[in-house]
Amino acid sequence: MKTESLEQRFQDRIDREERIEPKDWMPEKYRKTLIRQISQHAHSEIVGMLPEGNWITRAPSLRRKAALLAKVQDEAGHGLYLYAAAETLGISRDEMIEQLHDGTAKYSNIFNYPTLTWADMGTIGWLVDGAAIMNQVPLCRCSYGPYARAMVRVCKEESFHQRQGFEILLTLSRGNREQREMLQESVNRWWWPSMMMFGPNDADSPHSQQSMAWKIKRFSNDELRQKFVDVCVEQAKILNVTIPDRDLKWNEERGHYDFGKIDWDEFWRVVKGDGPCNRQRLKARIDAHENGAWVRDAAMAFAKKQSERKQAQKIAS
């Protein structure tokens, strides 16, 4: 069959809301787009463990520590679901890790910012996980089956993350002056990077349109960002915290909040490797991978020896 008609048939399946499964025919660009997006998503989960790992040993109570530990463990699991989903498209785990380490593959920019205070654990839960959830919920209906199924699991677990973060902030907001200032300072630092999590404006996002046609994406970057702002403004009131944007105001006509301009120069600077923690994050990942090599090798050698021994026993008996 001609490629053209195969592509047409593929698009018809997408338009009928049929899910695409690993062995189905798909355009090479669809496969590549998904590998890029899913692996980037997986890397984000894994690198995202680092800023929070920073606070596990210094959590203010056992309750907070247990919750943070569970959250970071969830993120490892999310990374794993997503790597597995990407592997169904024909890329190996090792290739993906290599691409992360040599800089070919990216991870979410947000994790290149440092976690300076305990309040950051709350703000990450509220704003960063909040933005992530907004991006991820529509992905549960993504046209690619394995990705959509992975996202259902991720989203189920993610809501605990956001709630534990908000609770941390709520406690600070009801605390003394110093605690309230810590909360405000943290929100000041994380607000704009969180807004950038939705990616460039629609006009500057070249891949978006094709991804929407393929139903990998269901909403545009700007639509999701607007939704995030509208939700957060109301939630900020409960925390008694000010969102650091002078242009933030209700627009009766649009039925949405207007907000200020995002510093895209900063965004691209961080994407290109010059954020506050880019080098540190990547080095931590590479070190962990290299220092763990002997463990992976030993496990393989042990498994081989065990199976050989079993084989020998079978022959002997």
């Binding site: 699991g77 597995a84 199924r149 992975a150």
Partner: peptide, 19 residues
């Protein structure tokens, strides 16, 4: 429910439990 990498069945089992 999904998949994972493991050196042998025993490790696959304990990782499946954790994940």
């Amino acid at each position: 429910v999904g998949s994972l990498h493991a050196a042998d069945a025993e490790m696959a089992m304990s990782n499946a439990r954790d994940v």
